[in-house]
Design a protein around this nucleic acid. Structure first.
Length: 634
RNA sequence: GCGGGUGUAGCUCAGUGGUAGAGCAUCACGUUGCCAACGUGAUGGUCGUGGGUUCGAGUCCCAUCACCCGCUCCA
């Protein structure tokens, strides 16, 4: 069973060297994370597996590694400077937060709506709200400026209406809004020494953005790659690299961070109007990449030990979801997300987007954009570019700007996905009936006590006093506990988790119950990461059965050294054999080798498999052939 | 940014104004022949940070930072 809460995965990551909080010595820095010895191995393994699938195994793909910092003009023409931002307002009354451009206007016919319109019209430029950029949408949006030349689109009305507090909060119907604030999600810096104040020409000329996506670096290199590698469309370019977004709300561990790593492909194809009989359309290419990428996720989420039933269960935690029209980014014709069912409150989360970006980007970066393309793509003419990103198709004898299919995934988010899926707490000993009864009676005690606390809290609240407990939360906790207890012993793994419920806080019997239960759970269970061997940070661990026997130690170290030339290995003799196995289980090491006294006589060792804990005697000189196919490297 | 919660040893946590604790982990010695063994001892904390109240603060107050949950977001 995969992780039940993100907390479990987080815990394991920090304890065992996958992920550490960034800048920890100085109290940390909002949602930046460092990757430890095992984390960096796993990230590398993910990237390698992706690169292998995206580049090596295809004959229509190339790779690049573009600079993180690019000309500001790249981001102006890609649309990111203007639209890669979210205008937000808060309702001060009910504390709800909305995207300013998503707040519904009062319905047509509502007098309020007329008032909004009147206000917008009469105020003119003078009453213009502190202008905050909203989502430009080609002809639909009207630019407000000093000339007063504008039309009042829905968005303008909304903008004015919000600032003048003429639109009610859709939740509580109050008119108490904060100033809409616009967050551009790009980090800024400057190239060279700049002393000029923000907003001046000098400052703007030196300004650069940390790239919010690696994609633009690929577009910049489309023509280079096409010419230098003599490629014909269709072909694609892959890139792995860091990207930066000043997210308003990062969080959920490494799910959303402000610095992250992307694995992106831009696959260049014929525009739809030139596709001939028997050739793949943009929609077919799109679907092909969706399926290929989906398969990649499933393959690496499934350990070789999985049976049919496990495979079915894993499949149910992955899905494809086509984005609706209003979700689409400014550049996309269609996007299908691949989503994973993360544990706990996170739920379904996007792990990859496969977008049909048409010729939006390449056209936007081209000089002298034809009139009809400007209109169709809602672009501004590009006088800044030196390049025309078109391509002469020798077969079709046509010159065109290729369309592009973009599969785009996050490396760090992939790591979280695979960790959540691989995480398992498994019982290795049957819990006795006494143990179960003990838990049941403890739970009854907790319930008894909590009922009293609820009554007390309700009394306090009725008397207008501050209550020590939130009766609703405590009740919620009790319901959860009750549910878990009635399903014992199947639900054993959920017992401790239940105690993390906010309603369980400050309940005396809960505090007493936790330590012995934790100890008991430790005794009867093991934590194991059922990672695909390709993703496992450590591929092999070698132990001597006894560390105070020189012969065993020597042979074990010799075996370890043989394999460390091929992949990441570990030698360990710092504990009893059972504990050594458990340690490796917890970090997902697929195979352990134990050297015992028999090994010294007949040259065989015990190979122990992670998922099944099964053991096999294997001659030392055939270990290589035994392990390599099972590790599925390459 | 807003609301709620949390912050004590490497980890999990106890400690409700009066001498900073437990289990696990780590290290040393002894013991230990395949799935989280045991004994003895040791190391380790200016209680997130900065102010304040008090004879005295881990505990009360204020500020601040980080993390968690929700709003939000989308790789």
């Amino acid at each position: 069973m995969p992780a039940l809460s993100l907390e479990q995965v987080r815990n394991l990551c920090m304890r065992r060297g996958f992920v550490f909080p960034g800048s920890a010595a100085y109290g940390g820095l909002g949602s930046f994370w460092d990757y430890g010895p095992l984390g960096v191995e796993m990230l590398n393994n993910i990237k390698q597996a992706w690169w292998h699938d995206a580049v090596y195994e295809r004959d229509d793909m190339e790779g690049v590694d573009a600079a993180i910092l690019m000309s500001r003009k790249v981001w102006q023409h890609s649309g990111h400077e203007a639209t890669f931002s979210d205008p937000l307002v808060d309702c001060k009354a009910c504390k709800s937060r909305f995207r300013a451009d998503h707040v519904p206007l009062p319905p047509i016919g509502d007098p309020l709506r007329e008032e909004v319109r009147r206000h917008a019209a009469s105020n003119g430029a003078g009453g213009e709200p502190a202008v905050w950029p909203t989502r430009w949408d080609g002809e639909e949006l009207v630019v407000s400026d000093e000339t007063g030349d504008r039309r009042f689109s829905e968005d303008d009305q909304r903008r004015v209406g919000l600032v003048h507090k003429l639109i009610p909060c859709p939740k509580c119907n109050e008119f108490d809004w904060t100033e809409p604030r616009n967050f551009n999600l790009m980090f800024q810096s400057h190239v060279g020494p700049v002393a000029a104040a923000a907003g001046t020409d000098e400052e703007k000329a030196a300004r650069v953005y940390m790239r919010p996506e690696t994609a633009q670096g690929i577009f910049m290199n489309f023509a280079h790659v096409q010419r230098s590698m003599a490629r014909k469309v269709p072909f694609g370019i892959a890139q792995i690299g860091k990207a930066f977004r000043n997210e308003i709300t990062p969080g959920n561990f490494i799910f959303r961070t402000r610095e992250f790593e992307q694995m992106e492909i831009e696959f260049f194809i014929k525009p739809e109007q030139y596709v001939q009989e028997g050739e793949k359309t943009d929609e077919q290419w799109h679907q092909e990449w969706i399926d290929r990428r989906f398969h990649w996720w499933l393959k690496l989420a499934t350990p070789p030990s999985a049976g049919n039933q496990e495979m079915e269960e894993i499949e149910q935690r992955f899905r494809k979801r086509a984005q609706t029209a209003d979700e689409l980014a400014h550049y996309a014709k269609a996007t299908t997300d691949i989503e994973y069912l993360f544990p706990g409150s996170l739920g379904w989360g996007e792990i990859e987007g496969v977008a049909n970006r048409t010729d939006f980007d390449l056209t936007a970066h081209s000089k002298d954009i034809p009139e009809d393309d400007l209109k169709r793509l809602k672009l501004e003419d590009n006088k800044d570019s030196n390049e025309k990103f078109d391509y002469f198709d020798p077969d079709a004898k046509k010159r065109y700007v290729p369309w592009v299919i973009e599969p785009s995934a996050g490396v760090t988010r992939a790591m979280l996905t695979f960790l959540c899926e691989a995480y398992d707490e498994e019982f290795v000993k049957e819990p006795s009936k006494q143990d179960i009864d003990q838990i049941k009676s403890d739970a009854a005690m907790i319930k008894n006590n909590a009922e009293k606390k609820i009554k007390q809290a309700e009394k306090d609240i009725a008397a207008g006093k501050e209550a020590k407990h939130d009766p609703v939360q405590v009740r919620e906790f009790l319901d959860k506990l009750e549910d878990v207890v009635t399903r014992l012993p199947e639900s054993l793994s959920e017992v401790l988790l239940t105690l993390d419920h906010p309603g369980a806080q400050n309940l005396e019997p809960v505090k007493k119950f936790r330590p012995p239960t934790e100890k008991f759970m430790d005794e009867i269970s093991r934590t194991v990461l059922r990672l695909h061997p390709r993703l496992a940070p450590i591929k092999l661990a070698v132990f001597p059965l006894k560390k105070n026997n020189a012969g065993l130690v020597e042979l074990a170290q010799k075996i370890q050294r043989t394999f460390q030339k091929r992949f990441r290995t570990i030698y360990d003799d710092s504990a009893g054999i059972g504990k050594l196995y458990r340690r490796q289980d917890e970090i997902g090491t697929p195979y352990c080798i134990t050297v015992d006294f028999e090994s010294l006589e007949d040259g065989t060792v015990t190979v122990r498999e992670r998922d099944t804990m099964s053991q096999e005697r294997v001659p030392v000189d055939t270990l290589h052939d035994y392990l390599l196919p099972r590790l599925e490297l390459g």
